[in-house]
Design a protein around this nucleic acid. Structure first.
Length: 412
RNA sequence: GCGAUUAUAGCUCAGUUGGUUAGAGCGCCGGUUUGUGGUACCGGAGGUCGAGGGUUCGAACCCCUUUAAUCGCCCCA
C-alpha cells in the first residue's frame, strides 16, 4: 500500500490550534472581559485585522526594529503596503480620526481579537496571538487612567488570577519631563559606556530608557544610581501621577511603584503600567498599557489625549487553567443505542432533548456491547440506554445526576 | 536575527557500545466474559524512528544539512 505522495501542509510558525481545555480557558477569558467591560460601560468595537502599513509605521516611528522586522507586511494587488495589525491602539486611533469619533469623546472602547507579529515564538508569545483591549480616547483626566486600572484589576480578580499578580506603576511625565529625564539618562550611561553590555551600548543610541530593564548584570550595577524620573517631573506631571495613585488607593487597588518601567515609543506620556506575574517565565507581563497623548498627532490628527491597555488572551488563559473557575463542560444526557434497531428512536430522542434545552450526545457506533461503557467514561449527567425487547425499543435511564423528571418529560 | 534542548504509533514515552522482524501503557476497532451495568481477558489495525544526505557489512542510535517544537537572548507597540 503506497501512500499518496501529498505532503500535508504545515501550520504557519507561531500559530496555534486551540482546542479542548485550552479553548475553554480562552473562551472564559474573553467572556469575562466582555462581562466586566460592560460593567464599566466600555463600548464594543469591531476592527479590521489589517490596515495600511502607514497606520502602524507612523505611530511607531519609522526607524525602529519593530517596524522593519516585526510586522507582517505585504503588498496587495494594487501595490499598496498593508500590515496585519500588530496592536489595537493604532487602528483604533485611525478609526477615531477617520470616523469622526471625536463627537463621542471621551469615548470608552473595548475590543478583542487576533494580532500578528513576526517574532520568534516562545512561551506565551506567538506570531498570531490574541488580546483583549480597552482604551479611553479623548480624556485628559487622570480619572480615566484610574478607571482603566480599576477595571483591569477587577478583570484579573474575576478571572481568578489576581493571586501572585502585582500592578506595577510608573509615570513618564509630560513631554518636557520625559525629554529631560531621557537626556539625563543618556549622559549618565554614556559616562560608563565601556562597562555596559554590548546590547546596552547599542541601546544608548537607539533606546536609552530600555537600559533600565536590562537583565545583564553588567548593566544592573549602574541602575541603582541612575537618574530617576521623579527628579525631572514638572509639578503638573507630579500632580497627575498623584491623582492616579490617589484614585487607585480610593478604589482599593493595590499597586507598587516601578521607576524602571518605561515605554520605548515617544508618544507615551504620564502613566505607564504593567500587571506582572512570576508564573510565566520570561514573559511575565499579563496586562500592560499607558497613556499615549502623543499618538494622534503622528497620524495627522489634532492633539488628543488617550489612555489604554491590552492583555494577551493566551497568557491569561494559561494562568486561568487550574483556577477552578471554568465551568465543567458536562453533557446533560448521553443517549446510548445498545441495539441498532433503536437507532431511529435514539436520533429522535436526542433531538427532543436538545430542543428542550438539554445538551445531548448520541452514542451509536462501535461494538453495541461496549457503547454503555463508552458513555460511562464521558463526562455526562445521565445515560439513557436504548435497547430492543419484545415490544420494540426499551429505555433505561441510568447514572442520573440531573433532573430525571425533566428528562422523562422531554422524551415522552 | 542569535543560543540551548528536543523530534520513535492517534497521545504519553521506552529502546543496551551501532547488530535479526522497533516496543509498552493509554486510546481506537473486533471478539469473549459480566448483565441493570464504570469488570476482566483475547485479538487486530496503526511507524519510510521529523525530512534529506553521509559514515558503516549493518544506523532510531554516529556525522552534516534542513524543517519544526520547546525554553531563553534581542525586541516587546
Amino acid at each position: 500500500m503506497s501512500k499518496p505522495q501529498i505532503e500535508t501542509p504545515q501550520a504557519i510558525r507561531g500559530t496555534q490550534d486551540i482546542f479542548g481545555a485550552d479553548a475553554d480557558a480562552f473562551a472564559f477569558v474573553v467572556e469575562t472581559f466582555e462581562r466586566v467591560r460592560k460593567l464599566y460601560r466600555f463600548r464594543r468595537v469591531e476592527m479590521p485585522v489589517f490596515e495600511k502599513t502607514t497606520v502602524f509605521s507612523r505611530s511607531l516611528g519609522e526607524t525602529t526594529d519593530v517596524v522593519s522586522k516585526e510586522m507582517y507586511s505585504f503588498e496587495d494587488r494594487g501595490g499598496e503596503s498593508l500590515t496585519l495589525r500588530p496592536e489595537f491602539t493604532a487602528g483604533l486611533a485611525r478609526a477615531y480620526l477617520t470616523n469622526g469619533w471625536k463627537q463621542y469623546a471621551p469615548v470608552k472602547l473595548a475590543t478583542h481579537g487576533p494580532l500578528f507579529r513576526y517574532e520568534r515564538p516562545q512561551k506565551g508569545r506567538y506570531r498570531q496571538f490574541h488580546q483583549i483591549d480597552a482604551e479611553v480616547i479623548g480624556a485628559a483626566e487622570p480619572t480615566a487612567d484610574v478607571e482603566l486600572l480599576v477595571m483591569a484589576d477587577q478583570l484579573l480578580k474575576e478571572l481568578g488570577i489576581a493571586e501572585g499578580v502585582t500592578l506595577t506603576l510608573n509615570t513618564l511625565g509630560d513631554g518636557e519631563s520625559r525629554e529631560a529625564w531621557r537626556a539625563a539618562l543618556i549622559e549618565y550611561f554614556r559616562a560608563v559606556k565601556g562597562e555596559l553590555s554590548e546590547d546596552s551600548q547599542e541601546r544608548l543610541e537607539k533606546n536609552p530608557l530600555r537600559i533600565l530593564d536590562s537583565k545583564d548584570p553588567r548593566d544592573k550595577a549602574f541602575l541603582p544610581n541612575a537618574p530617576r524620573i521623579d527628579d525631572y517631573l514638572s509639578s503638573e506631571a507630579q500632580d497627575f501621577f498623584a491623582a492616579v495613585t490617589g484614585g487607585l488607593d480610593a478604589a482599593g487597588v493595590a499597586w507598587t511603584r516601578n521607576g524602571a518601567l518605561v515605554r520605548g515609543l515617544d508618544y507615551y506620556r504620564h502613566t505607564a503600567f504593567e500587571f506582572v506575574t512570576d508564573r510565566l517565565g520570561a514573559q511575565g507581563t499579563v496586562l500592560g498599557g499607558g497613556r499615549y497623548d502623543g499618538l494622534m498627532e503622528s497620524l495627522g490628527g489634532a492633539p488628543t489625549p488617550a489612555v489604554g491597555w491590552a492583555a494577551g488572551v493566551e497568557r491569561l488563559a494559561m494562568l486561568v487553567s487550574g483556577s477552578g473557575l471554568i465551568a465543567e463542560d458536562r453533557t446533560d444526557v448521553t443517549v446510548v443505542v445498545e441495539d441498532d434497531r433503536a437507532i431511529t428512536e435514539g436520533v429522535a430522542i436526542a433531538a427532543k432533548l436538545r430542543r428542550g434545552g438539554l445538551s445531548a450526545e448520541l452514542v451509536a457506533t462501535g461494538s453495541p456491547r461496549k457503547r454503555f461503557d463508552k458513555a460511562v467514561k464521558t463526562n455526562t449527567r445521565a445515560i439513557l440506554a436504548l435497547g430492543w425487547g419484545e415490544d420494540g425499543v426499551t429505555q433505561r435511564l441510568r447514572n442520573v445526576d440531573a433532573d430525571a423528571a425533566r428528562i422523562e418529560a422531554l422524551i415522552a
